[in-house]
């Protein structure tokens, strides 16, 4: 009996550890999730269901959702900076990173938003934006690469798609999007809009949970290093931001505290230099 209990405990621990490895945020009570019906420990129980959901949205659906989210981002942040030299620069840096990312076959687009605020966003499918404020603040290609690599990691690890996968009501998105454009298919636009709103609300207001952001930071560190940009480009950029934080004013309000992110990035660099 004891032996059986031990085996069950081991299996549960293995599953928990596996899920933590895949996306630790699922297991952590997240203030951002309070009141929205998401129960982290129910997620553990629904591991199989979650994993199934992770593959439930195909590429075509991802591109469709991403396109709509990209339009919302551009609309919310003052439109796009239509300057060809700036757009070319961020695309060359971004595409040189994306080429070696875990999803190199996606078509990535990198744009600059006409906003003085300091922020960056990504939409599923490969649309990535930084604000003019952040573009101007980045002191070199290495810092820009660090920021873009962070956003690329959100795309490659499908962080935004996992938001809607967590919302049970949106499980039918694949069918909705794939039926679109056919005579028989009449997409439920209200439902679709709710799903897009769920992503944009997270991007603009709640932010990803801290572990997801740390995951993107670590992915950015690895990717930038692999491609040959300074491994501490993102860290440098965050330090510049930190120096501009005034008392009571939080830069990147939808992200974990800068201090914690910088500490973690430092630890990656220390480990890499050993």
């Amino acid at each position: 009996m004891k032996k059986a209990a031990s085996i069950i405990a081991l299996v549960v621990l293995c599953l928990a550890a596996f899920d933590a490895f895949a996306q630790f945020g699922f297991l952590r009570p997240n203030p951002a999730n309070q009141g929205n019906g998401i129960q982290p420990f129910k997620m553990l129980g629904d591991l199989g269901k979650t994993l199934k959901g992770a593959s439930g949205i195909g590429l075509q659906e991802e591109l469709t959702i991403g396109h709509s989210v990209a339009v919302q981002i551009v609309s919310k942040y003052g439109g796009l900076v239509r300057e060809e030299d700036i757009t070319r620069r961020v695309n060359l840096i971004g595409k040189s990173l994306a080429y070696y990312s875990d999803r190199p076959e996606l078509t990535y687009r990198f744009g600059v938003l006409n906003s003085a605020s300091v922020n960056a966003f990504s939409a599923p499918g490969g649309y990535i934006f930084i604000t003019r404020g952040l573009y101007d603040m980045a002191q070199n290609d290495d810092q820009l690469a660090g920021v873009l690599a962070h956003e690329i990691t959100h795309v490659t690890r499908k962080h935004a798609l996992k938001i809607i996968e967590r919302g049970e009501f949106f499980s039918g998105i694949a069918g909705l999007a794939s039926d679109a454009g056919t005579a028989a298919g009449k997409p439920d636009l209200t439902r679709y809009s709710q799903g897009v709103d769920q992503i944009t609300k997270t991007l603009f207001e709640k932010g990803f949970d801290p572990q997801t952001e740390y995951d993107a930071d670590q992915g950015a560190f690895n990717l930038a290093s692999m491609v040959g940009y300074a491994p501490d480009g993102l860290e440098q950029c965050l330090r510049t931001l930190q120096s501009q934080e005034a008392p009571g004013v939080t830069v990147f309000p939808t992200h974990p505290p800068l201090k914690k992110r910088i500490e973690r990035l430092e630890s990656y660099l220390t480990a890499a230099n050993r």
């Binding site: 591109l63 709509s68 339009v71 454009g181 636009l189 809009s193 897009v196």
Partner: peptide, 9 residues
């Protein structure tokens, strides 16, 4: 711009 996004826009 696919049909779903076009309608959404």
């Amino acid at each position: 711009l696919d049909n779903v996004t076009a309608q959404y826009v």
